[in-house]
Computed example of a mutant assay.
Amino acid sequence: MSVLEAQSLTLSYGEHYIIENLDLKIPEGKITVLVGANGCGKSTLLRSLARLLKPKSGGILLEGDLVGSLSTKEVAKRLAILPQGPIAPEGLTVLQLIKQGRYPHQSWLKQWSKEDEKIVQQALEATRMQEFPERAVDSLSGGQRQRAWIAMTLAQKTNIILLDEPTTYLDMTHQIEILDLLFDLNEQENRTVVMVLHDLNLACRYAHHIVAIRDKKIYAQGKPEDIVNTDMVRDVFQMNCDITEDPLFGTPMCIPHGKGRQINKKKQQSVLL
């Protein structure tokens, strides 16, 4: 079952077409990762799914409803999006940031409640940010800052979370930390997660469903083990590689061809002896 669907979707910036006549169904309760070369339209497609970009033609269905027919508040109650490199106002604390996730649920009749407070605390705990509620967001490390923003999206209490390159600018340790967090949210709370990732090997490790985009259309989609092969990498990324099995996870692992330094194994062995 799909909870988010694009039908004959065409996206453009002015006369420059980014996506053309694309059909896509996001599976419910799974992690879907959009991959492709720089400039292929991954982030543009994600923004359109969140109704941040109006289609040139076609439409987006959110839980069966045309997203264009819904109010902004209604969309925010069903779907949360974390854009690439969000910036918080100077001095804004972690707690103040996370509370913003509850705004779609506020009204003149329904003000801040104990339930809101409980959800904010749950978001702090889920992202392991309960030690930093009074810290300014701009004073945090890159990994902590990203966890704070994810906590805000969790506070929206939506079944669908979209993230545009959530690991950008993070070191290896913090990349895995963020992806493990999203994996746990999916496993434990059955949240539908859709994200853009540049690292194909990490995409294969964490995704149930991969969508590869090329030439303004979907080149292939499915389970990583079904679609990630040398032909796909060559056609989508214009790169030759070998595909082997990840020794820890059993998922496809891409080993790019290139001009890296060659190790003389015989010489290395003799030195060790």
Score class of each variant (00 low, 15 high):
Leu179Pro: 09
Glu117Thr: 12
Tyr169Cys: 07
Ala6His: 00
Gln106Phe: 14
Glu187Arg: 10
Thr251Lys: 12
Glu117Ala: 14
Gln121Asp: 13
Leu273Lys: 13
Lys25Trp: 08
Ala37Asn: 06
Asn201Asp: 12
Glu63Lys: 12
Val236Met: 09
Met1Thr: 11
Leu79Phe: 14
Ser71Asp: 12
Asn190Asp: 09
Asn201Ala: 11
Asn186His: 06
Leu97Glu: 02
Asp65Phe: 06
His257Tyr: 11
Asp246Lys: 03
Leu140Gly: 04
Lys265Val: 15
Leu9Asn: 04
Lys114Gln: 15
Lys42Tyr: 00
Pro166Asp: 08
Pro86Cys: 10
Leu61Thr: 02
Ala220Gln: 15
Pro133Met: 05
Cys254Gly: 01
Asp65Thr: 06
Leu202Ala: 07
Gln262Met: 09
Lys114Thr: 14
Pro86Glu: 09
Cys254Thr: 12
Gln175Glu: 13
Thr244Tyr: 10
Met232Asp: 02
Glu90Gly: 00
Leu109Asn: 06
Asp138Lys: 00
Ile26Pro: 06
Met129Asp: 11
Val211Gln: 07
Thr192Asn: 03
His198Ala: 05
Asp184Asn: 11
Tyr206Glu: 12
Gly64Pro: 07
Gly258Phe: 05
Lys77Arg: 15
Asp138Ala: 08
Val211Tyr: 12
Lys217Leu: 00
Tyr13Phe: 15
Ser270Tyr: 09
Leu97Gly: 04
Lys30Tyr: 01
Val94Asn: 01
Leu82Gln: 06
Gln96Arg: 01
Lys266Gly: 04
Thr93Phe: 00
Thr153Val: 14
Ile119Leu: 14
Pro166Ser: 11
Arg47Lys: 14
Pro83Thr: 09
Phe237Tyr: 15
Ser107Phe: 08
Leu92Lys: 02
Ala220Glu: 14
Ile150Gln: 02
Ile119Val: 15
Thr192Ile: 02
Ser8Asn: 14
Ile119Pro: 05
Ser270Pro: 02
Ile218Phe: 02
Ser139Tyr: 03
Leu45Trp: 07
Val75Cys: 09
Val67Asp: 03
Ser107Arg: 06
Glu134Phe: 08
Asp226Leu: 08
Glu20Leu: 13
Phe183Ser: 13
Leu4Ala: 01
Leu24Asp: 12
Leu24Gln: 09
Arg234Met: 13
Met129Asn: 13
Leu61His: 03
Leu49Pro: 05
Ala148Val: 04
Ser141His: 07
Val35Ala: 04
Ser107Gln: 07
Thr32Tyr: 08
Glu115Trp: 06
Ser69Ile: 05
Glu15Val: 11
Asp242Glu: 11
Thr168Ser: 15
Pro83Ser: 10
Gln238Gly: 07
Thr44Lys: 00
Ile60Pro: 00
Ala148Arg: 05
Gly41Tyr: 08
Asp180Cys: 08
Tyr103Pro: 04
Lys54Ser: 05
Ala126Ile: 09
Ser270Arg: 15
Gly143Cys: 03
Glu5Val: 11
Leu140Met: 02
Lys77Thr: 14
Gln100Phe: 10
